[in-house]
Design a binder for these strands. Sequence first.
RNA 1: CGGGGUGUAGCUCAGCCUGGUAGAGCAUUAGCUUUGGGAGCUAAGGGUCGCGAGUUCGAAUCCCGCCGCCCCGACCA
Length: 510
Amino acid sequence: MHALRVTRAEDFPEWYQAVVREADLAELSPTRGCMIIKPWGMGLWERIQGELDRRIKESGHENYYFPLLIPLSFFAKEAEHVEGFAKEMAVVTHHRLKSIDGALKPDPEAELAEPLVIRPTSETIIGDAFARWIKSYRDLPLKLNQWANIMRWEMRTRMFLRTAEFLWQEGHTAHADEKDAMDETMLALEIYRSVAEDFLAMPVIAGEKPENERFPGAERTYSIEAMMQDGKALQAGTSHYLGTHFAEAQNIRYQNKDGGMSLAHTTSWGVSTRLIGGVIMTHGDDDGLRTPPAVAPRQIVIVPMLRGKPEDAQILEYCTGLCAALGAASAFGAPVRAFVDTKDARPADKRWDWVRRGAPIICEIGPRDAASGQVTFIKRNALREGEKIKSHTLSRADFIVQSTGLLEATQKQLYDEAKARLDSNIRGDFATFADIEKYYGTNDEGGEFRGWARVQWSRPTGAALEEVGTRLKALKLTIRNAPKAQPSTFGKCIFSGAPAVEEILIARAY
RNA sequence: CGGGGUGUAGCUCAGCCUGGUAGAGCAUUAGCUUUGGGAGCUAAGGGUCGCGAGUUCGAAUCCCGCCGCCCCGACCA
């Protein structure tokens, strides 16, 4: 008897929806495609924010805030950029409502002279500021970041993975030359890799996107790709070297040391609330989410087993004291986040609420524990032994001393588990495209697990690349990226038989 | 936007084919019992049956239109 009605094996998409709901992460809002993020989900995002914000600042960036609304004309400047986003922009056209025939409508007389676009990303409005702020090589590099909400009018939305409105961080920088900008692009990618792996316990493969998967307006796009438990890839973060495309379009120039004018080289990079979807599909199980301790808003939850009897007061006092003592311990370089759940609800129900949310350690303190100075607890990442819930007992003193180790070991176990799944499900033994077709092309109604393929190719461009894309699309596959770690010698291109120049990852993707 | 599914109580769903005053389980509330772990019994509260228009004496049920959600596709740094 699992805590969720649906198991991953039965129906992975349904299971995902169930975790989002049952772990109380978020729910759909009355606004189409937008979600209400609830405290446990928002707590995850706040932890991600805190960690990323620290690293972004440590690497020399400063936070700014640019407007939500961007003049429509700004998008007309970079041709590829507008083409990429035109189909999913929400546009503000009026500034006043009026009651017309009893219905509240935009006042026809209050139409804006120039429509405003709700930002789908901020390259254009930040580029405009760059053009004004950057005059001399002494102004470079200019490295900024902003935390913001974004709107993209998506055809099909999924909680956390693709919503019309989402929260993200977007870094934007300008540099004197390509080398400096490329160093920045790779620095951002490395921060994302590290946060995903070290903080979210979500192993990823960092690499460069092929030409046809680039950000509109980018010269080069890099991504980190994570493997979900259904074998699909999730693009969990991106970093773009924009070359001088936006500098040309928006006139971002500076006077160089020789007195001449040069175009700035810009970058942009971002991660979003989509990471939470990645955490769910990396660490979730049939009892709900398993939240990695480093990111868990509450790491140790204490459930007092109250029964409406005189000794309740004693149990509560014991729990409060335990909570305070745990708060004085530390894990991951910060005080342990412990919490006593005093909600007026049945203890067993509270236990299962925290199991579904995935609190890493859940203590259940009864009168006997309180009286004898013990702690009875369950470990969420290894909840069951067979079908049964596995419970542990330590003395209070031992539990407090070991809490750091328990949390850090849980983090490592979650990472190791996910890393083993990633490593063992990337196949590198496809000799021909026919082998790929045979593996991915068979009937997949049963939802059989298929991981990723690592193959070599000749990195075609233009029409030849499009043809590769079409062949892959027939199998519902896409090229994810060319991993940073490349072999020293190459064989033949799996698509054309020509000499290969690069190894790439192919997978189904979210 | 195209194809399929679906929408009935907070949740999961039955009822619809064959029209006749709205159901179950869980949850909620109250009482009693129970108490090392998702308790039992009894009782109660809770629904414009997604929205709108139609057929009919009568519509959750039949017809038409619209909307939301889920899946697949298209699309999607």
